[in-house]
Design a protein around this nucleic acid. Structure first.
Length: 314
DNA sequence: CTGGTCTCCTGATCGC
DNA sequence: TGCGATCAGGAGACCA
């Protein structure tokens, strides 16, 4: 599922192709995926406009047009923006393509210098994503100012400020885009594991050193995932259909019941605000006092001795 | 005000 | 082989 690294990688792969390109015709096959707030559909979708920049805040990506309008792309669970260079997709790949733009790429000259026509496609089978039109960059920034600071560059002090009044589990706070922008279920679990913080710890009660470590791990894990092209579990592809490889470095997400890569204890699975959550009961103690007692005999609640083999049967 | 739960939506997977 | 049940979860609506 696309989170910040996937969206940023997508933006970086689209940017050189789209900036400077002019969007010709736009085809809307399912207009319910477009929130145009009163604008005419073609205007909302930047028809006829030249793309002058791409932007990102959290999990949202925006295309800025020459006339000042902006179009925000939200990928939701299964959304994608792909470049179709000549060949049209077939089969399942051709389904659920809700909006299609014809455009002339900037850096790709066709035969005898003629400019080929490429296509940009917004596809989203589950339709948790969508496109939102803004009349100006000011209007867009207004909306984006309601998001928390971007997780890719989060500082310890900014994270501390964001969490200071969050009277809820740290994992719930991390997933709230108004607190911190860009983190979803995968990278919430990964960053909490790396920072050795239990997902149910009260956000506002974290020690400053823990918040600083969490900010550091967020930056490290997210930027590494961007470089790896994001995490492809099933659906995610970049602008040219390539999957990301960051899933190979997941230490917690999707590893319930498997041994912790640090201590070997079977990872535990719980649900936090209805999200599947995986953590190490040994490395991420619920009671913060335990983490200061490294080396001592740490009492572990519940019978963790049973390595819950029930789930591994296959 | 805060935070937890529900709802949308489709495809993959599992069990029988 | 087929089919129904289950699961995945971002984000906004809704409720305690």
């Amino acid at each position: 599922m696309p989170e910040l690294p996937e969206v940023e990688h997508l933006r970086r792969s689209l940017d050189p192709v789209l900036v400077g390109a002019r969007l010709h015709a736009v085809t809307v096959r399912r207009r319910s995926v477009v929130d145009r707030s009163g604008a005419e559909l073609g205007d909302a979708l930047l028809s006829g406009q030249t793309i002058v920049a791409t932007h990102r805040r959290g999990k949202q990506m925006a295309l800025e047009a020459g006339n000042g309008r902006a179009l925000v792309v939200q990928l939701g669970m299964t959304g994608s923006m792909t470049i179709e260079a000549g060949v049209a997709p077939r089969g399942m790949e051709a389904k659920h393509r809700h909006v299609l733009w014809d455009f002339s790429p900037v850096n790709a000259a066709g035969p005898r210098g003629s400019t080929p026509r490429w296509r940009l496609a917004f596809r989203d089978p589950r339709r948790f994503g969508g496109l939102t039109a803004y009349a100006s960059m000011d209007a867009l920034h207004q909306t984006w100012s309601e998001l928390g600071p971007d997780a890719l560059t989060i500082s310890a002090s900014d994270l501390a400020a964001a969490l200071a009044r969050a009277r809820r589990p740290i994992k719930a706070a991390l997933l709230d885009q108004g607190v911190l922008a860009g983190v979803g279920n995968i990278y919430a679990d990964e960053s909490l594991f790396a920072a050795r913080i239990h997902p149910l710890r009260l956000a506002a009660a974290l020690e400053h050193a823990e918040v600083a470590e969490l900010a550091r791990q967020l930056r490290r894990i997210l930027s590494a995932a961007v470089e790896q092209g994001g995490s492809t579990l099933r659906d995610y592809r970049d602008a040219f259909g390539q999957p990301g490889t960051a899933v190979q470095s997941h230490a917690a997400y999707g590893r319930e019941g498997q041994p912790c890569l640090t201590c070997g204890t079977p990872l535990e699975g719980i649900r936090v605000i209805a999200r599947a959550t995986v953590f190490c009961p040994q490395c991420q103690p619920r009671c913060q006092d335990l983490s200061t007692n490294v080396g001592m005999t740490v009492p572990v609640q519940g019978g963790r001795a049973a390595a819950r083999p029930s789930r591994r049967a296959k």
